[in-house]
Design a protein around this nucleic acid. Structure first.
Lengths: 134, 134
DNA sequence: AGCATCTATATGCATATAACATATAGAGGA
DNA sequence: TCCTCTATATGTTATATGCATATAGATGCT
């Protein structure tokens, strides 16, 4: 199953925060999932949902990002015909994709520091315990 | 001065991470700076730079976001004429803006948890010390 | 006076992204 | 036949972003 042991399906509304979407973040997440094991898009959708990804994932987002990452050379795909159900495209991580994960990790860590700096400052100013309203 | 005591002017390149931009994050940052004290756009640009915001800030980004936040009712502006230099627009946080900060904080915390979950998983898989390559 | 520079605000435009809807299609069941 | 589930893919529209550029007062230099 999913190894996101520390993700507890956050509930939140982004009302009042238009545009701060971070959807491209789905790319490193999918790369990491594919590092765990090859998969097809539909399976990735399910695994992303179980990994704290916001409620319903738009299939369009998943497949378009898979295409883009294949163009980048981070993943490779092959049709899996036969068996049962419609044909599926099985995605595998490439060595370049594994490198990309490291690049993303640096970037993600940087962004996380920025968010943390904001929150530290926020809490310094307001010193409340809104974190427990979950 | 700037109270971002825990921000050490991160250096990084976002090569290989196209689209993960998070520029809207400038909004809550500016709101928090305006909570500290009223300011005009040019001053905010400088204070943002001192607060770990990426190198050179595009003035367009700053002023456009100020306009949008004024439309939202989060900030209010008045022309400061006279004294020296060209006229400047002095921005003040409104009560709605202070509420917005709390909303943003929830959202930002949520996003930070997502990033943290990714990084935890990443480190679980790779167990390296890339954090020290700084 | 003429000119560059700094402060300060603002807009234009091409492209990238996001949100949402919709299309296509095989397989299995009622 | 029709519906649903699995599975992939595209179109449309609105918004966001990156980068360049416009405007303009004040100041200092030659």
């Amino acid at each position: 199953m999913c190894k996101c042991h520390n993700v507890h399906h956050f509930h939140h509304s982004k009302e009042g925060c238009p545009g701060f979407r971070m959807e491209k973040f789905i790319q490193p997440c999918m790369l990491l999932l594919l590092y765990e094991r090859p998969a097809h898009g539909y399976e990735l959708m399910e695994r992303l949902q179980r990994c704290g990804f916001s409620g319903n994932i738009d299939p369009g987002v998943v497949y378009r990002n898979l295409r883009k990452m294949e163009e980048e050379g981070w993943i490779r795909s092959e049709w899996e015909s036969g068996e049962s159900g419609p044909a599926r495209r099985r995605y595998t991580l490439t060595p370049e994709g594994e490198e990309a994960i490291h690049g993303w990790a640096v970037h993600v860590r940087y962004q996380m520091e920025r968010l943390k700096a904001f929150l530290d400052k926020y809490e310094e100013f307001f010193r409340n315990d809104e974190g427990k309203e979950d």
